[in-house]
């Protein structure tokens, strides 16, 4: 087992990770749904920060643009549109039932069982003594998680993700999934517009070009 050493990057990682836990708790424990939305935005920004710290720049940018930028805007719109906080005194937070809380703890226990060895050794090595190191640390892929099956042997530089490699992967290797994502987005637009329509805001005004022409024709006559 290689001995751990703390670097400055690790300190930042601890800070970001701890803050994201706090804002995650804020999502669940806020009384008002708007506060939950804002805490979720903060969580997404913090997670984007963690991505950037791991030098996954593309994904960090996407996280900010897509998740924090587009999806959360949708959420805030819907929360404002529905105006469910009009009677905000009503506590929208049921007393947690024993079943759900015990399920969550059980589940976390199961997860921890999977990560146990690595976490305990890391914690031990921090406690036993470590020193602030230089910024860079080399990656060593061999560990007790993956026994010699990582796709590259030992001495390789860190993963460099360029637009070229992303494009190659998306458009050559995963082209089927890429096209399927296009179909998925179309299907979700159709489904969402269909479900959200009302009489005053129908999905297709007048059902087709012919009907539209008739309407316009009769109004200009």
């Amino acid at each position: 087992m290689n001995t751990e050493s703390l670097s400055i990057l690790n300190i930042f990682m601890f800070i970001l990770g701890g803050l994201s836990l706090v804002s995650g708790l804020g999502v669940v424990l806020s009384r008002k749904s708007l506060n939950s939305a804002l805490c979720l935005v903060a969580t997404m920004f913090l997670i984007a920060g963690q991505f950037a710290l791991m030098r996954a720049d593309f994904i960090a940018t996407l996280q900010v643009m897509l998740y924090a930028g587009a999806i959360m805007i949708l959420f805030v719109f819907v929360i404002m549109l529905l105006g469910v906080e009009k009677d905000a005194e009503k506590l929208s937070f049921s007393v947690p039932s024993y079943f759900s809380i015990s399920f969550v703890f059980l589940f976390f226990g199961i997860l921890f069982f999977g990560f146990r060895d690595g976490i305990i050794t890391s914690a031990k090595s921090i406690v036993e003594g470590s020193y602030l190191d230089q910024l860079e640390s080399t990656t060593e892929p061999i560990n007790n998680f993956v026994t010699g099956t990582s796709s590259n042997p030992v001495l390789v530089p860190d993963l460099v993700v360029t637009p070229k490699s992303i494009g190659n992967s998306i458009l050559v290797d995963q082209v089927v999934s890429f096209q399927a994502i296009g179909i998925l987005l179309l299907a979700s637009i159709v489904g969402a517009a269909f479900l959200a329509q009302t009489k005053k805001a129908p999905l297709l005004p007048g059902r087709g070009l012919k009907a539209m022409k008739e309407k316009h024709g009769s109004s200009t006559n």
Binding site: V28, V104, F108, F145
Partner: peptide, 23 residues
């Protein structure tokens, strides 16, 4: 990225996942 980072991130994401489940 060294192993400490790996384990810490995995722990954080596991806890976040469980917080989400609880929510």
């Amino acid at each position: 990225m060294n192993e400490l980072g790996l384990h810490f991130n995995l722990l954080i994401s596991a806890i976040l996942f469980c917080i989400g489940v609880a929510g």
